[in-house]
Simulated scan of single mutants.
Amino acid sequence: MRTTFDAVADAVYIELVPGIEPGRSVRNEIVETDGGTVVLDFDRAGILLGVEVLGATELLDGEFLAGAERIDQQ
C-alpha cells in the first residue's frame, strides 16, 4: 500500500492496489464531508483501487500525514 501526500493541493492518495494502470479506474464514489471530500476509485470488477482525500489536513490524523510520501517537494 502506497500513500502519497501533496501539501500544496492538501490531498492524499492511498493506493490499495499497487501500480494502478491508467484507465483502470472506471467508477468513482464521492463522499462530501464538512472538512473535505473522499473519492473511492473502483475498477470494472468492483475492486476498490484507491482512496483520494481532498482536505487531507482537516480529515486525517497528523501522524498519518507525516508518514505519507510527499510528492509536492522538488
Rank of each mutant, 00 (worst) to 15 (best):
L59P: 07
V12Y: 10
T33H: 12
A45G: 07
L49I: 06
I30W: 11
A11W: 12
R2S: 11
N28T: 07
G46Q: 06
I14E: 14
I30E: 14
I30R: 09
L60K: 00
F5Q: 05
G46N: 09
D34G: 06
V8Q: 15
G55M: 14
L49M: 05
E32D: 09
A7M: 01
L49P: 07
P22M: 11
S25Y: 07
D72M: 03
I71F: 10
A56Q: 00
R24I: 09
F64Y: 11
V53K: 02
T33Q: 13
D61Y: 00
E58L: 10
V31A: 04
T33F: 11
G35M: 08
Q73W: 12
T37W: 03
G62Q: 15
T57H: 08
R70I: 00
E32I: 01
T37R: 10
V31N: 02
E32T: 03
A9R: 08
I71H: 09
G35P: 10
G23Q: 07
D72A: 02
G19R: 14
A45I: 02
M1P: 12
N28G: 04
R70T: 00
E32K: 04
V31F: 08
G23I: 07
I47P: 01
T4P: 06
L65M: 01
I71S: 10
T4A: 08
A45T: 13
E63L: 03
L59N: 05
L48R: 04
L65A: 01
V31W: 04
G62R: 14
G36W: 06
V8W: 09
V53S: 03
I30Y: 09
I71D: 13
L59F: 10
T57N: 04
F5C: 04
F42Q: 10
D43G: 02
R70M: 00
T33W: 13
A7T: 03
A66M: 03
G67I: 00
M1D: 13
T57D: 07
L54Y: 12
I47D: 15
G55E: 15
V31M: 05
I30V: 15
A11S: 14
T37M: 08
V8M: 09
V39H: 01
L65V: 00
A9D: 12
L16Y: 10
D6M: 01
V31L: 09
D6L: 02
D34W: 05
D61I: 00
L65S: 00
L60E: 04
V31H: 08
V12G: 06
E58M: 08
T4G: 05
R27F: 15
